[in-house]
Design a binder for these strands. Sequence first.
RNA 1: GGAGAGGUGGCCGAGUGGCCGAAGGCGCACGCUUGGAAAGCGUGUGUGGCGCAAGUCACCGAGGGUUCGAAUCCCUCCCUCUCCGCCA
Length: 423
Amino acid sequence: MLDLKWVRENPDVVRDAAKRKRIGVDVDAFLDLDQKLRTAQQQVESRRAEMKASSKALGKLSPEERNVALAAQKELKAELKAMEAELPELREQHQKLALLLPMPPAAEVPDGNDDLENVELRRVGQVPEFDFEVRSHVELGEMHGVLDIPRGVKLAGSRNYLLLGELARLEQCVLQYALNHMVQRGFEQVSVPSLVSYECMEGTGYFPGGEEQAYLCERDSASLVGTAEVPLTAIHCDETLAADQLPIRRVALSPCYRREAGTYGKDTKGLYRVHQFWKVEQVVIGPADIEWSIAEHQRMLAHATDLMDLLELPYRIVNVCSGDLGQGQVQKFDVETWMPSRNGYGETHSASRFYDFQTRRLNLRYKPDAASKPLHCHSLNNTVIASPRVLIALLENHQQADGRIRIPEALRASFGKDFLGEV
RNA sequence: GGAGAGGUGGCCGAGUGGCCGAAGGCGCACGCUUGGAAAGCGUGUGUGGCGCAAGUCACCGAGGGUUCGAAUCCCUCCCUCUCCGCCA
């Protein structure tokens, strides 16, 4: 959510934000409604003040005087009721539009329509060159009997899968390694609910708008999260934190659920796009300081890329263009990891900076010092690792001519072997 | 799932129709006192919306209703706690 006072003063900036992000919101309709609502509210308030004052006086009148006054009061009341009747509808519409206003992208965000226009910032690591016929992760997984997609589909429909034996173990090793990686960097590990309330989804910016993408448990008015970003960011909603509590750096491993509606026919093969996966997510809540947010964004990006270095995977970082940014994001960097079967880079991480967009919706504030008024915190998040998507990169990049998979040095101790698929 | 109790300001707790945005206490802030501290005394101390401001409105778990007027009466819902049952 944007600061509505600021929106009134800077409507052009908001219009431009919508245009750059390719979001069709009618800013003028909002401003118009906003004006109407405030006028109506003021009218009701002054009328109510009138009512209140005379009601108070009424209590002290003699019985005869009272009867006369009562009649007048009844009339006032009827008028007030009529005026009040318009408010709920206005408020609802107002709130509805306000929730859709886009956060302006940072100046350094490239303009563009969609992910095709994201701008590559740098490439890291050596893309492997194979002197043998490259196998896809599906071929490799089936070859070793550690991946079973047909039976995953049998159990739960398309975009489901089974990992077995060494691959299931490798997955847990990677996830654990990622958690340790973040704890070493000062993050507090948290175990979070992955089934959350509507307020959490709305507060983090997924609702309204993202309902199609989420599994809803309507009977219990709860949703399965698509990322631990949601519970992690919402932990302190409706709270006012002390300045010395910030920044709060947390990491969580959670199952993630995505309906992938509207992706029919896209990435249908293998483990790239699935309905359920594991993700280790980092979230930071900090002070309302743009410079700090920008610096923290880079630090969080580095936590993820350091891990990719340790996993010996080649990747690139892209500056996500305006049209590919979410409503609330100020800037986003994606890490895309090399996947031989795609003969290209596939998105494995997404690092977002929100400033106070989420915290406003969440009513999450802090007091810079004891004397000052509370300010809304800043929030940021980034993937640490997501599986099975990272397994695609691990299997394919580290495959050998005979189909074995070399386990990167970092994972050997926990995995217990140097190669997956070794007899 | 069954039975009961309860949700009031940072906390405890009073308040059963108008003088209640709310007594009292604790805590906190400032001042007096003191060599310094404690105690004591005094003063102050919720949040949010709108407004240039004076101000005004809203908020006693949430929503609705009764009334000229609701923390207080009525209805619905939510949450917390205790006991019993069931279960990881």
